[in-house]
């Protein structure tokens, strides 16, 4: 056994003063910081600075047509947003789309992962095929769906009773947005779950089989608990990602018929209503929502959160 150095034997005479770092350790530390510095600076510059600036903008009345008249108005933009039914409608749609699509993705993703894990042949082909939705540009896929469901051009619309235009009705449109989202992102979920499946030892499943567990019991009592970390990571990633949904809605409905997400609302306020103050307030609120979701995940599932076991 090659012993990693510091675990070596006599720890007893542990030194009181930790500042007595050897020259080598200090150099290593300095090099570490030096190598990370550019990345850290860039990341802070492109996120922390803009978000602080967004908070500043959100406290102003700022119409892009009259930038000279911008002035400080305190929290009144937030008041306007939070008392507007558009915000709550968009938030409701976003939460709905997030909840349904992530749930469907989890089930479908599990099915796909099991297919890839258990398939007796064609595993590679399936995996390659499944990567295509992941790799494809969202806008491209969205257009494909849009044309498919538009009467006259679409093969799928042709399957419906004539005269129906699903993308122009609230619930069908929401359903189609979820469909497009699920199609695009299930592969990612499936791949994360597949990697998790690989960590479930075959022998444990055999043991469960010998203990008399049926296929479903093995799945829910052995596989799923052992995969919990992988599942939680996949859920966290996908929930936060789904909450930011923009591309699919923009192409499929542009947010018409009350199908707009919070991101669409923010975009419209900025580029249609040209109201930078309100737009920034929405930006900040979305940021807070995402932070809240992430915080809830980390709080609820603590150690399973990615990065928790990091930094060995």
């Amino acid at each position: 056994m090659t012993q990693p150095a510091p675990t070596a034997p006599a720890r007893a005479p542990a030194p009181k003063d930790r500042r007595a770092l050897s020259e080598g350790a200090r150099q290593e530390r300095r090099l570490g910081w030096l190598l990370c510095a550019p990345a850290v600076i860039v990341m802070l510059a492109v996120t922390a600075y803009p978000i602080v600036y967004a908070v500043y903008l959100s406290l102003q009345r700022y119409d892009l047509r009259f930038p000279q008249q911008a002035h400080f108005v305190g929290f009144s933009n937030y008041g306007a947003v939070l008392s507007s039914e558009f915000w709550w409608q968009a938030l409701w749609v976003t939460v709905l789309i997030t909840a349904i699509s992530v749930t469907v993705e989890l089930v479908l993703g599990f099915a796909l992962a099991l297919v890839m894990h258990r398939a007796i042949f064609g595993r590679g082909t399936v995996r390659t095929a499944i990567l295509i939705p992941y790799g494809i540009v969202t806008v491209v896929a969205a257009y494909s769906w849009q044309y498919a469901w538009t009467p006259d051009t679409g093969y799928l619309a042709a399957l419906l009773p004539s005269g129906s235009a699903p993308l122009t009705e609230h619930w069908p449109a929401i359903g189609l947005i979820i469909l497009a989202e699920v199609w695009k992102t299930t592969p990612f979920m499936a791949l994360l779950l597949l990697a998790g499946l690989a960590l479930v030892p075959e022998e444990t499943l055999r043991a469960a089989q010998v203990d008399g567990a049926g296929a479903w019991q093995r799945f829910f009592l052995v596989t799923v608990p052992l995969m919990k970390p992988a599942i939680l990571v996949a859920l966290l990633f996908r929930t936060l990602d789904a909450f930011r949904i923009f591309d699919n809605i923009y192409i499929l409905t542009s947010g018409a018929h009350n199908t707009g997400s919070v991101s669409i609302l923010g975009y419209d306020n900025l580029f249609t209503a040209l109201n930078l103050g309100i737009g920034s307030a929405i930006s900040v609120l979305i940021f807070l929502c995402v932070a809240l979701i992430a915080f809830a995940f980390v709080k609820l599932f603590g150690a399973a959160a990615p990065g928790a076991q990091e930094g060995r």
Binding site: V40, A54, I286
Partner: peptide, 28 residues
């Protein structure tokens, strides 16, 4: 390398990867 702040860096980059882009659009 061994240096303090390592897990902070990973945590920070994960956090930033989760950032909603629309929140950056208006200030940017």
């Amino acid at each position: 390398l061994r240096f303090p702040g390592k897990s902070l860096l990973i945590g920070m980059s994960l956090l930033i990867a989760m950032f909603p882009p629309i929140s950056l659009v208006s200030p940017l």
